[in-house]
Simulated assay, not measured.
Amino acid sequence: MPEVMINGPEGRIEARYLHAQDPGAPIALMLHPHPQHGGTMNNKVVYSLYQTFVARGFSTLRFNFRGVGRSQGVYSGGEGELSDAASALDWVQTYNPNARFCWIAGFSFGAWIGMQLLMRRPEISGFVSIAPPANLFDFTFLAPCPASGLVINGDKDEIVPADSVKKLVDKLSTQKGITITHNVIKGANHFFGPQIDDLSRMVGGYLDANVPAAETEEK
């Protein structure tokens, strides 16, 4: 799990990267929770996502947004963090010019940033959104959502009410040609705690069912 430093818009971006052996391996980018509330790339949910993608042969990157860990800069309310994510994706693409396809995964604040990046980068073919904070941030930019993906939240989430996530999923699911898979983990709060293994299995199962199809399309 080599440490890398990426040149970002506000200086260096601290990251961890695992490069797959297959030169055509897909790529994946992981985005962490809110920088002002303790979110880092070492968050348990983010690390779990990272390991799940790595186990399925993705060249996978997780990184710290500006002002977190050894990443330079200061929190900028989302706009700068989106620029950080774009720079991180550029870096992964540079080292994987033959990648068959690209996925993005985010948790909480990271899910919000990830969905914005999805709208701006047509090469992203799938996403995983964990506890997207639909009650705290504006998701109306998803009009339409350009790719199918997986949304997971807990029914005991004390920060993002389950009904707000369901409303977001229902809105996205009305779009033709897009399939939004929505899983709710019973008993899970915002950080999933004891249910982290359930979360990993759900994400892994979704990738197992959908990555081969995406790969076939690219060939």
Rank of each mutant, 00 (worst) to 15 (best):
L172S: 07
P23G: 13
G38P: 09
N98C: 04
V45Q: 09
S125V: 05
G24M: 13
V54D: 09
K167F: 00
H37C: 01
S71A: 06
A188Y: 13
N183R: 15
R201M: 15
I130Q: 05
S83P: 00
D163F: 10
S87L: 01
G149L: 09
T174K: 13
V169Q: 01
E217W: 00
K186I: 13
Q72Y: 03
L117R: 01
E81L: 01
P97D: 11
F127I: 05
G126P: 02
P2T: 11
L199Q: 11
F58K: 10
I13A: 08
D198C: 14
G77K: 03
T60K: 14
G114K: 04
I159P: 00
F141N: 04
Y50K: 08
S129R: 04
E79F: 01
I113A: 05
A209V: 00
N135R: 00
D163Q: 07
A147Q: 10
A88E: 02
R56G: 12
S48Y: 05
A88D: 03
G106D: 07
R66W: 09
A188R: 14
E79G: 07
Y50A: 10
D22Y: 11
N7Q: 15
F101W: 12
E217Q: 06
G11H: 12
V160I: 06
T174N: 06
K176W: 01
R100Q: 11
F63H: 04
S71T: 03
D198V: 14
N183E: 15
A88N: 03
N7M: 07
D170W: 00
S200E: 15
D157C: 00
I13W: 07
Y47E: 13
A88P: 05
V45P: 09
F191Y: 15
M1R: 07
L89K: 06
R56E: 12
P161C: 02
N42P: 01
A88M: 04
S200G: 14
C145H: 05
G38S: 11
D84C: 02
A143N: 15
P2F: 07
I104W: 03
R16G: 06
W112H: 08
Q36W: 00
L89F: 09
M115E: 12
E123V: 05
G69W: 05
D22F: 08
H182S: 12
Q72D: 10
R62T: 12
A28L: 11
E217H: 01
H34G: 06
L172K: 01
T60W: 14
C102L: 02
G67N: 08
I180T: 09
E158L: 00
P97T: 13
G69H: 04
P133S: 04
R66C: 11
E10I: 05
A131Y: 01
P26G: 10
V128S: 04
G24P: 02
A25N: 12
E14Y: 06
K156L: 06
F139V: 10
T40I: 12
H182F: 15
S59C: 10
Q21D: 15
F101T: 06
E123A: 07
L168D: 00
S164K: 04
V169K: 04
T174M: 11
P132Y: 01
E217P: 00
L18G: 02
N64W: 07
M5L: 13
G80F: 01
T181C: 11
V184S: 08
A147Y: 03
K186N: 14
